[in-house]
């Protein structure tokens, strides 16, 4: 069993449920086990001030952190999943979706739209790892594809922040797998038209999300110590039957092996995006 940096045992079971900042006045850090004052963590963009462990942030918080205040305009908010397979994952899929909608206040795992970063208009999308593990079904694929097409058409920079431990969503079967093809085809056109795309990887970005839009940026950034990879560490450990190297499939591992451009602390992400967009602008 590999240890994530900071000593946290990696308990990936095919799907990864990232830890949110828990309720209560005090909380324990997942990274360094320190007892932290919750309010202080929240004020620090959900980053541990002891060890810099990056807790997951909700879609709403992420938008507030990255975009100019009150500039985000959401597109296609009323796209909702169907149930093409009649899938029953210990409970019927539509019921699971409803429960997730109530729990998170989101309609689906992806939010797309337009907004401004330091006065520059961009098309912005993200997947919230809290909604069925941020997995990509038909709605996530469709929203992202429409957003990419819009960015291409309007010649706007595109930024997508991925957080998805689930990859392609099992509950929608082959239709989920095909979203990888759909989104990647749209990005091919965006690139061919000279459009900028910056991909930001957050903990965790796995499977079909990592193997499609998350890996196709002109520039790929990652938050520190995020789990990023194709196959889950548990699946790999069962397949190869050897101890996984320490720090395997982290942002640092990907940087080392040449698959991302930079690791960026959450507090620097907004200004880094603005700077990069500026470099790519005429």
């Amino acid at each position: 069993m590999s240890l994530r940096p900071g000593g946290q045992a990696n308990t990936w079971h095919g799907h990864f449920e990232p830890k949110r900042v828990p309720e209560g006045v005090w909380m324990r850090c997942e990274g360094c086990q320190a007892t932290l004052f919750r309010k202080r963590v929240e004020q620090n963009l959900n980053v541990c001030h002891e060890c810099n462990y990056h807790f997951s942030v909700s879609a709403v918080d992420r938008i507030a952190q990255l975009l100019d205040a009150d500039t985000f305009e959401e597109w296609f908010p009323d796209l909702r999943p169907g149930d093409p397979l009649g899938f029953n994952d210990r409970r019927p899929y539509p019921e699971r979706v409803r429960a997730e909608q109530e729990r998170t206040g989101l309609n689906e795992a992806a939010i797309v739209g337009q907004g401004f970063i330091k006065g520059i208009r961009i098309v912005f999308g993200l997947t919230d790892s809290g909604f069925i593990m941020g997995s990509m079904g038909s709605v996530v694929g469709e929203k992202l594809t429409r957003a990419i097409e819009e960015a291409t058409l309007q010649r706007l920079p595109l930024v997508i922040v991925s957080g998805s431990g689930g990859g392609a969503r099992m509950h929608e079967g082959i239709l989920s797998l095909m979203q990888m093809a759909k989104v990647s085809s749209a990005l091919a056109r965006h690139h061919a038209a000279g459009g900028l795309y910056i991909s930001v990887l957050t903990h965790p970005t796995m499977g079909g999300v990592a193997a499609s839009f998350a890996s196709l940026g002109d520039i790929i950034l990652a938050e520190p110590k995020a789990l990023i990879g194709f196959a889950g560490p548990k699946v790999i450990a069962q397949t190869v039957r050897v101890q996984l190297p320490s720090g395997f499939q982290t942002s640092e591992f990907l940087l080392e092996h040449g698959f991302i451009d930079r690791i960026v602390h959450r507090r620097d992400l907004r200004s880094m995006l603005a700077q990069l967009i500026d470099y790519a602008s005429p």
Partner: peptide, 12 residues
């Protein structure tokens, strides 16, 4: 799903 496959960028 192996170590070398991840090191060489399977997802990418």
């Amino acid at each position: 799903p192996g170590i070398a496959a991840e090191e060489r960028g399977q997802a990418s």
